[in-house]
Simulated assay, not measured.
Amino acid sequence: MTLRISSPVTGSVVALSAVPDPVFAQAMVGPGLAVQPAAVAADVLSPIDGTVVTLHPHAFVVAAESGQAVLVHLGIDTVKMKGESFTLHVVKGETVRAGQRIIGWDPGSVEAIGYSSVCPVIALDAQSSELADVRPDGDVKAGQTLFVWHP
């Protein structure tokens, strides 16, 4: 099923290869893009319609009915924050719509303690050849399309 993946945050699109973490930069978990968010407190939105199958304060996975799943990771090394500065708005197993708020956070507080606030958006278990209409580097608003996934 063709799936439109929207940006979970407002900011600037950056290539996955620019993410300061080799697991994301080398697309070990899947291809995608990253968004450098504006450094203001905001809600992180679901990139697709689906079910929240994994939920942590710093990351979540939403799976579509087709089985395709998208990982959104809020910053790098933010697992070390143990949930501080993150607010969950949904529970694991909840059905969500694209654009629905999932987590509240403040990228500025992440950067203030020395972590990167960049947000990888990953098409899990996909091949890079399955992604199309990939948004070029530049500004993006939450809810705008980042890429289209054709499995």
Rank of each mutant, 00 (worst) to 15 (best):
L88A: 12
M28E: 09
D43E: 13
F60Q: 03
S7C: 01
V90W: 00
G32W: 10
A59Q: 06
V23R: 11
G67T: 07
V40Q: 14
A42Y: 08
W149I: 01
K82P: 05
G50K: 05
K92V: 14
F86C: 02
P136I: 10
V91A: 14
T54C: 11
T51F: 00
Q68H: 09
G108C: 10
A142S: 08
P37S: 08
D43G: 14
Q26D: 15
V35F: 02
G114H: 04
G108P: 04
D139W: 04
V53S: 12
F60A: 04
I113N: 01
V96R: 07
F60N: 04
W105E: 06
F147C: 03
I113Q: 13
V90A: 07
P120E: 07
D49P: 06
R97Q: 15
V62I: 14
M81W: 08
P120I: 11
T2V: 15
F24Y: 08
G143T: 07
S17N: 07
A63M: 09
Q26S: 13
V29E: 05
T54I: 10
S7V: 01
T2S: 14
S6Y: 05
L55Q: 06
A34F: 03
A112R: 15
S46C: 01
V9P: 02
S66M: 07
M1N: 13
P107K: 03
A142E: 02
R101S: 13
P8S: 12
A42G: 14
I76R: 00
S129R: 11
Q26Y: 12
D133S: 14
P57G: 02
D77Q: 02
G143V: 04
V9L: 14
L71N: 02
G143I: 08
S117F: 01
A25H: 13
T51Q: 13
H73A: 06
F60M: 08
D137T: 06
V72A: 10
S17V: 06
L45T: 03
L33H: 05
A98N: 01
D21R: 00
A27R: 12
K80V: 01
A18C: 10
A64N: 11
V52Y: 01
I5S: 00
P57I: 10
V140W: 01
M1C: 11
V23C: 05
A98T: 12
P37E: 00
D49C: 08
D133C: 11
V140T: 11
G50P: 05
S117P: 10
G50S: 04
K80A: 13
V118T: 13
A64H: 14
V91M: 13
T51S: 06
P22Y: 03
P22G: 10
L74G: 10
H56F: 12
V140R: 04
D106M: 09
Q127H: 14
R135E: 11
C119D: 09
T51G: 09
T78Q: 09
S129F: 11
S129D: 14
S117I: 01
E130P: 00
F24H: 03
W105A: 08
P57N: 00
